[in-house]
Design a protein around this nucleic acid. Structure first.
Ligand code: FES
Ligand code: FES
Lengths: 135, 135
DNA sequence: CTCAAATGATACCACTAAGGTATCATTTGT
DNA sequence: ACAAATGATACCTTAGTGGTATCATTTGAG
């Protein structure tokens, strides 16, 4: 099971690169060169980050993206939400029809508790933390 | 995201039923009647539980399954392992090729830590606990 | 002015795993 | 003998994930 999807993973890496190389605009071509990951996918990811307000973009020749949010304000959990939707380890309880025992479910509390542990932890991690730990 | 798969979920419910209704053999037909979930799927699940050593089985007319392990010894994490394989929230790090940054990954430690929190918790939960909480 | 290089927007594709079904063989109480 | 049960196994369908392709638009550089 993957807590993080590939989208999120790539996004984190792109953001880290941009945060640690303050040099104006970065294009997908640049990132491709640096990070060696599937270009068109990366592009989609960056566009999403732009729409979500993490990046500004400049079109046209010599265009690209730029980080517009301080790393300390970029929480991992928010990135996950952007790419993976609401984080929940117990979908069965709410959205989907996984579980039919509904009200009296003995697993419910357990799963919910763990979910809260994880999300609490995720909320505490920012891009700045990741950069710091990476060194 | 689902921490527990449907297999596991059904297994837990079947086991709880069997543990709280000590009455010899229980057939899939019985469980179908009681729990109202897809019969052939349930059957597959029970067969798996049998192979894994949780149930004994009797073939033929009036046959069925019987719990052969005390609920206090049935750990949730073991059931998950049976149906879902090794529990890991950070597959990207080991098995699959999710992440290419490998060695220097700043996300690595975070995810691993959370995984450890969750598995520690899972290891502590037994079927007996679930039954107790259900009341 | 023109064109290449870039993003915006979107549609499409392939693969996998999860959830579920179906079938046939075998066993066994009545 | 037969129905009711499990053993074993193959199959199907769907949704999500990871990834590609295309066309339109913008814009700096020559
Ligand atoms: S919600 Fe999963 S057993 Fe009830
Ligand atoms: S393992 Fe996911 S960012 Fe490196």
């Amino acid at each position: 099971m993957n807590l993080l999807s590939r989208d999120t993973d790539y996004a984190v890496r792109a953001l880290i690169y941009m945060a640690t190389h303050e040099q104006g605009l970065v294009s997908t071509a640049d990132l491709d060169r640096e990070l060696k990951l599937p270009r068109p996918f990366m592009r989609k990811t960056l566009q999403t980050l732009q729409k979500a307000g993490y990046l500004s973009s400049v079109k046209g020749n010599r265009g690209g993206f730029k980080l517009v949010m301080p790393p300390a304000k970029i929480r991992l959990i928010d990135l996950m939400q952007v790419f993976q939707g609401n984080i929940s380890l117990g979908d069965c309880l709410f959205k989907k029809k996984l579980c039919t025992c509904v009200a009296t479910c003995p697993l419910r509390r357990e799963v919910k508790d763990m979910e809260e542990m994880v999300t609490a932890r995720l909320k505490a991690v920012t891009l700045a933390d990741l950069i710091r730990n990476g060194k």
